[in-house]
Design a protein around this nucleic acid. Structure first.
Lengths: 352, 352
DNA sequence: TTTAAGCACTCGACCGAGTGGAGCGCTGAC
DNA sequence: GTCAGCGCTCCACTCGGTCGAGTGCTTAAA
């Protein structure tokens, strides 16, 4: 089957491309006559029918019923986006809309919100942004606050601008003085190092001086790792889900509900995005390819974004499989680039 | 018109009640024959028709077209919930489901999330909880952290369990030592006092000793007020919006989209809930009563919840106007009570 | 072998007429 | 005031027929 797609001659490819473009534009099954007229080829409708029969055998198109036109199958879309599609350059107004959406002085969280809003507004589909993984991010400060018996608040300042805090429940009680000393110790040792490095260092020291203080520090670092680590369900921000209600190919209430619930849970969205994080360019998921059945008739277009040459996250849109890939792909692409460079400008450096 | 509703005799009231109950159950227009049979009254269908004509004149019911049965108008629902409705006691399994949803040791945020989830799960509609106003809440601790030139992180611990932090941008730079002193001063003075009281006290002091330190403290308190204050759009948590996709009376995509967008914006939801915060019992909004046109065919059922006898917030559900008020009202009611008492148990007091 | 023309066929969309049933309003008797 | 009966209205459903788009197949030409 996979080889069969390679065997497509130029004419068949042109016809398939024209058919899919036409279907994406109008949403109507395409018949042989219209296809023969619009393809630009000088062939008759009958010939087109023969080619279409071949394409149908290969599983690239199918008719919803006898004597209707043909519509692309998921496999047809796949071939289309992989090797038939010619992406347009983004239109000037799209570019303007995207560029004006970035405020490099905003906090990371605000930047994520703005970006997913942007994606959804420009594409009129649902936008999503996977938050940057702070894998090798520098912890610039850590503080502890005693809340009560055995309850301690840990405050982590990351890169001098992000703040995260968590409550630790401990067996042993620490006085505020002890906590202050521990924080001083940690701040002295971890200045500018990544969480991973700090953790390794602490583990090494612990082997020597085994006491509660170190256990506490280790706990703090563990917490730090968890706070900025992976698989936090809040690690993806979504916007514009409601746009999906407008597409009549998604009008099935039961499926629509599954879809919106997936956005609320975020877990499955996260899974999809994480699949896309490898690969350095735009990636596309079509229909059930991801194995999720609520995903029928939907596609995602994603692109990773990088800071200083390292991929730190993914963003993308989700919409009906019948979408204008030639418009959406470049939008997602340049948004990813702009987000990357906006993240690269640390507001700490240029504050005031 | 309003007086007319008062003039309803017992028989007309019984018929109206039976009609609305029947329509809520089946979703079908109710005809005179069925109504005569099910009302329990020993009157003929023809008599029922006469009464129905009167009710229609009063604007309480109407027929979707000639020679269909009657369905309640918003005014009919209004009269129904105000004076015709007999609420059931919540069913045992509902009670169990509600009670098991409360974990008094959870943080306020978690409690809100759990409660709105609970409401939506039990009623199969959308649940929402307006976060408690911390009007007179005690600030138990405040700390400052220097992030960079003129950038300070303020950490507020409220009631010994809530933590809020905000970044302050200031004109003047403070050293960590200065900040520490300020925090110590503040902590010594505001221990256990409410934000309002603290603010008033600071303003009084400032009139005497006018220096930058006090300005800073005032800024910190201002921030504190803002952090826990009102009109933060995140002040309401919503859950289970997708349940609304299942009701065919809300199946109009355009309206449905407006509805879901209102849930995302939260602003209008907030407005509705704030209207309900006065009044000490369950309140009900029906259809367009709130002036929002996306609200057609929808109703809200809300109840305020109190801690130590003082109303601190509102919770409720939103669903189709054609809902089982007799089931939903008690559910909302007991949920509000339970949330209030769960909030009353401070986890600090009974920790460990 | 490829291309194209013709033809029969299929299927959905649409329209109009006909039918059954639910339900209403009205009238007149009690 | 009550209510049985009658005629009427309107909806929902079905049935048959037509139209148009589109297909598959066959056949003939290039």
């Amino acid at each position: 089957m996979e080889n069969a797609t390679i065997n497509l001659d130029a004419r068949a490819r042109t016809l398939l491309r024209t058919l899919i473009e036409s279907y994406i534009r109008d949403g109507q099954p395409v018949g042989s006559r219209t296809l023969a007229r619009t393809s630009g080829l000088s062939v008759s409708a009958a010939t087109v029918r023969n080619v279409m029969a071949d394409l149908e055998d290969m599983g690239l198109i199918h008719s919803p019923h006898t004597s209707a036109g043909r519509i692309p199958t998921p496999a047809g879309y796949r071939l289309f986006v992989d090797s038939l599609l010619e992406v347009r350059n983004p239109s000037p107004e799209d570019i303007r809309a995207i560029q004006s959406g970035f405020d490099p002085s905003a906090s990371t969280q605000d930047l994520m919100d703005a970006t997913s809003n942007l994606l959804s507004r420009v594409t009129r589909m649902a936008g999503m942004v996977r938050l940057p993984r702070h894998r090798n991010v520098a912890l610039s400060q850590i503080e502890f606050l005693r809340l009560g018996e055995g309850r301690i608040l840990a405050i982590l300042v990351i890169d001098g601008k992000e703040v995260q805090n968590r409550v630790l429940e401990l067996d042993r009680d620490f006085s505020q003085d002890e906590l202050q000393r521990m924080a001083n110790y940690l701040n002295a040792h971890l200045a500018g190092k990544s969480l991973h490095a700090v953790r390794a260092e602490l583990l090494r020291e612990m082997r020597d001086v085994r006491d509660d203080l170190d256990a506490m520090m280790l706990a703090a670092i563990d917490l730090g790792e968890k706070a900025v680590g992976d698989e936090d369900p809040d690690d993806v921000v979504v916007a514009g889900q409601t746009h999906l209600l407008g597409y009549e190919e998604l009008a099935d209430m039961a499926r629509l509900r599954q879809l919106l619930e997936a956005f609320n849970e975020k877990q499955e969205i996260l899974g999809i995005l994480d699949q896309c994080i490898r690969g350095d360019r735009v990636q596309i998921f079509i229909g059930r390819e991801s194995g999720l059945d609520w995903f029928e008739n939907c596609s995602v277009v994603t692109a990773p974004y990088s800071v200083d040459g390292e991929v730190v996250g993914v963003l993308g849109v989700i919409g009906p499989t019948r979408m204008s890939y030639d418009r959406v792909i470049p939008i997602v692409d340049v948004t990813a680039r702009l987000l990357g460079s906006a993240l690269g400008d640390h507001p700490v450096d240029d504050s005031k």
